[in-house]
Amino acid sequence: MFTLLRIEFTKLARSRGFQLSFAALAGFVALMLWGFYTYAERKTGGQAAEQFRYTYESKSYFNGLTFALYSLVFSFSLLVPVFVAATAGSQIAGEARAGTLRMIAVRPVARVSLLLSKFAVVALHVLLMMAFFVGLNLLVGLLFVGWGDLQLYPGPLNLVDEPGRIARDDALWRFACATLTGTWAMLVVAAIATLLSVVCESAAVATVATIAIYLALYVVGRVEFFEQLRPYFFTTDMDFWRDVFKPQIPWQSLYHYASLCGAYTFGALLAAAALFDRKDIKS
């Protein structure tokens, strides 16, 4: 298993998609920083300054930590899943299409071990992406925006019902927790992409199908019309990762949704393993 993991990680680390994912995340941070500054400049000039004075009255309303939180939340919902789906979706279908899967499958390697090692490497990729992204955001936040306590406000993040504050050191610990909870939540997407990668003959189809399912549920889950269906969407349960940023972390609820995500992940992996074990490798 260790050999498999080493080989799979070597393959992933040298793939273009792996390098692209980090470059894209870095690009997104730059975009966030640009958007943040243009927004601030526009809203604090002339009349806008008067209207938004409560927003900017305290210079600590936006600081490096707030910037990092906004950047993390926005990218987690829409950007990270794309890279996770692309990496996981290509694991089996991509190798099958390229023909390398049959080169491996005629070796004395259990197919389930191969699948699980591929998934483990995807999970490591997700963790590295999250850690890189959190670290980069905090660094950029520190250098370009400033440091301070993490101020929390109700609004677009849908994180708290009333304003709160998390002390700086505590907030940094929360970001570290978010790296782990975010990775755990994103493994659901990775497991579904892995399952589709087993089912589909093409990596592109597996990736697009995963993203389509994720985005459909994500968007539909935010439309009031589907209120009653929302609890049944895995995207709803994935939202638990942000609970670490609540002033009082709701541990019971966090464990509940983390367990549900775990059930989705292992369930999808089980289905993937069962199908892959019986799959005819015809490519």
């Binding site: 019971q252 609820s253 464990y255 509940h256 949704y257 367990s259 549900l260 775990g262 059930a263 089980l270």
Partner: peptide, 11 residues
């Protein structure tokens, strides 16, 4: 998978 479901129910 089963353990996760049990944990989810428990919490």
């Amino acid at each position: 998978c089963a353990a996760m479901l049990v944990a989810a129910h428990h919490f």
